[in-house]
Computed example of a mutant assay.
Amino acid sequence: MQLRTGTVTSTAVPVTVTWKAADNAALAKVMAASPSSATFGPAVTSWPTGAKPGSSDLFALKVYDAAGNTAGASVYRTPNIIQETSTTRTGTWTHRSGTSHLGGYSYSSSSAGASISWTFTGRSVAWIVSRASTSGQAYIYVDGTKVTTVDLKSSTTLYRQAIWTKTWSSSAQHTLKIVVVGTSGRPAVTTDGITTIG
């Protein structure tokens, strides 16, 4: 299971459950039993759904073959939302209050080179932001290595957006660092925390 892009709320974070299923004859279907019910065709190998943050969620699947035989698999995963109080910040950041932000606040910076970083333990992470037509770009570093540049600009104003994700094969300690580019004419970067899966 891994985090995916989309809207994050205090009650649900977007995740994707993936699986591999095979049969010596033919698969008939895959059914999800938890945390909600869904039925998939034999060629489907992923399920975009949501998970409740702060609690251990059971994700359970059952596979059926054409002869009626079944096999099941399940896993518990705990997604967490980690806000800016658990960060190391450099440069100028402004605390912004508002009901549209997770936990009622976010942090914003328009200063090129300003950074904010989280150290966490997990197997998947997503960076959550606010987006607008005046939003700028940010460099993303993972464990000290620059991995990409993300553009937060959006024609419509969007809040609590998981804009970027990364997943590892197992849970371990990592550091995610965001650096403000200082994009000409639209330098602002507004961060609303991260979400992780342990």
Rank of each mutant, 00 (worst) to 15 (best):
T39Q: 07
W127A: 15
A32P: 06
S169W: 09
A28W: 07
S34T: 11
S36F: 07
M31F: 13
S117I: 00
Q83Y: 14
T85V: 15
G185M: 08
P79F: 05
I140T: 12
Q173C: 12
G91R: 05
K146G: 10
R77I: 08
G113E: 05
A188G: 14
T157P: 07
I128W: 10
P79W: 03
T85G: 15
S74A: 11
K20T: 11
W168E: 00
F120G: 06
V30S: 00
V181W: 00
S86H: 12
S37E: 14
V15F: 02
A60D: 10
N80S: 11
K52D: 00
P187R: 04
S170N: 14
G91E: 08
W93K: 06
A21I: 09
I194P: 06
S74R: 15
Q83E: 13
S155A: 15
W19T: 02
W168H: 10
S111T: 15
Y159A: 02
F40E: 03
T18P: 08
T16M: 11
N69Y: 11
A43D: 10
W168R: 13
T70H: 12
H95V: 12
T190E: 07
S184Q: 02
G122H: 02
G122D: 06
P35S: 00
N80R: 12
R89Q: 13
L58T: 08
Q83G: 06
Q161E: 10
